[in-house]
């Protein structure tokens, strides 16, 4: 099919707009760094506190040379992914339990509310004592933060299923298991998928918080170590790397979400 000139013009306009947006975005980032660099060099901002891009890149370069930057990145990524997967799997399982046993849900309701409103970082020191000063503590911390959110999101999805559809299955004398597999899970598919996005953010918060409390490796460790020795370039490097990691992870989850939802509907 050949395109009409209007269609062609429309598509060209859209393409141009997209390009323009990208260009401006890059421009913002570049000028931000240049401005930062210049202000630091000319004493407009305190270089000791805010560091400057050239020092940051220098620090990152040295970290790579010292050959342990990737170790730190790998540790943090590993913790995030383990917490993320555990959060989804456990969250899904607990949500099913709560849904299938309403009495259990009623009994646990106040405790879940308490756990949900509790600032989880407060139990961090306790976790360290129980799990030890290691990677397990970090993952537990992250799991504590993402799990409750996953459970609540997925459980709410289950509860919002159209009651007519449940009645329909009841009229066919469906068993609990059949209801779960033919209706509850497929109907909450998109809820479960969208809980992934929330879960990845929560996992990152939890992991960095955990690394702040106890760690020998990881980006959170770099940041906290940098603060302790007043190496603000190291702190800024950590933050910069973290921004990049979280941006990439988020984009990956969104891409996964698109893919999973496209196949389904």
């Amino acid at each position: 099919m050949s395109m009409s000139p209007e269609q062609k013009a429309f598509l060209a306009k859209r393409k141009k707009e997209k390009l323009l947006i990208r260009l401006i975005q890059i421009l913002i980032v570049v000028s931000f760094f240049i401005l930062w660099e210049l202000s630091a060099q000319h004493g407009l901002i305190n270089e000791f506190v805010f560091s400057k891009p050239s020092s940051i890149f220098q620090t990152i370069y040295q970290l790579i040379l010292a050959n342990n930057l990737f170790n730190h990145i790998f540790t943090t990524l590993y913790e995030i992914i383990i917490a993320f997967v555990l959060g989804i799997v456990l969250g899904f399982g607990i949500a099913i339990l709560l849904y299938e046993f309403p009495l259990l849900a009623k009994i646990l309701d106040p405790f879940l509310t308490m756990l949900n409103s509790l600032p989880k970082v407060a139990i961090g020191p306790l976790i360290i004592i129980i799990a030890g000063a290691n990677i397990k503590s970090v993952i537990t911390m992250a799991l504590l933060i993402n799990l409750i959110v996953s459970v609540m999101t997925i459980y709410n999805g289950f509860q919002n299923i159209d009651s007519h559809k449940i009645k329909l299955l009841n009229s066919f004398n469906a068993t609990k298991m059949q209801k779960l597999t033919t209706l509850i899970i497929p109907a909450s598919y998109s809820t479960i998928i969208s809980s992934l996005k929330l879960n990845i953010s929560m996992s990152q918060i939890g992991v960095i918080m955990g690394e702040f409390l106890v760690s020998k490796e990881g980006i959170g460790y770099l940041i906290i170590y940098g603060t302790q020795v007043f190496n603000l370039s190291l702190v800024m490097s950590g933050i910069l790397i973290l921004i990049i990691i979280s941006f990439i992870l988020y984009k990956l989850v969104v891409a996964l979400e698109h893919k999973l939802l496209k196949n389904k509907s």
Binding site: D162, H164, K165, K167, L168, L169, S171, F172, N173, A174, Q178, T182, L183, P186, A187, Y189, K264, S265
Partner: peptide, 24 residues
């Protein structure tokens, strides 16, 4: 039992929807 709402499952094809009772 035919309900007030069609209660069709949006993720199933028409044939699979019609076969739902038999499947259960």
């Amino acid at each position: 039992y035919m309900l007030q709402e069609d209660a069709l499952f949006p993720w199933l094809t028409i044939l699979d929807n019609a076969l739902l009772g038999l499947k259960i």
